[in-house]
Simulated assay, not measured.
Amino acid sequence: MASEKIIPLRLSDGETIKVEVTQIGEQPVSSETRIFKKATGIIKSVANDVAETLKEVDKTVKPDKFSVTFGLEIAVESGELTALIVKGTGKANLEITMEWGE
């Protein structure tokens, strides 16, 4: 069962922030400071995949405008940071909006 805990994360500029993370699996989450950059690689991968897909959508359905909103939940699995795309109210998800003019 997943549980939440607040841990410190060190940013690229050396600043430290506190983040609520979800524990996945049996290993307890320690309060050691982790490097946030390790979890942000997933953001780049998701954004690249979504952008590539939307380029194809733009060629076929030709919306006048579209936007993408996605959010991630930070989790700790086997002591390492990971990011999850989650759904539900109060949680992050993937939302794509397309608009066509009249």
Rank of each mutant, 00 (worst) to 15 (best):
A39F: 02
E73V: 03
S12G: 06
L94Q: 09
V29S: 05
K87Y: 09
L84D: 05
G71I: 13
S78R: 09
G14T: 12
G90I: 12
I7T: 01
P63N: 08
L84E: 08
W100F: 10
G90P: 04
I17M: 04
S45R: 07
S30Y: 00
A92R: 06
P8K: 14
S3Y: 14
I42Y: 03
G41Q: 11
V76C: 05
T16P: 01
K59G: 01
S45N: 04
E20Y: 01
P63Y: 10
D64P: 05
E15G: 04
V76A: 05
G88H: 03
K38T: 13
K44L: 12
A75W: 09
L9M: 13
D64L: 03
T40D: 10
L81T: 12
T22Y: 06
F70H: 12
T40V: 06
I35Y: 02
W100N: 10
F70L: 08
S12F: 00
S45Y: 01
T22E: 13
T16C: 03
F66G: 02
V86L: 11
T89K: 15
T97D: 08
S3C: 11
E4Q: 14
I74E: 02
K5G: 03
G41T: 14
L94W: 11
A2Q: 11
L54G: 01
L11V: 05
T33G: 00
I6E: 13
A39P: 00
V61C: 06
S78F: 07
V76E: 09
V76F: 02
F36M: 09
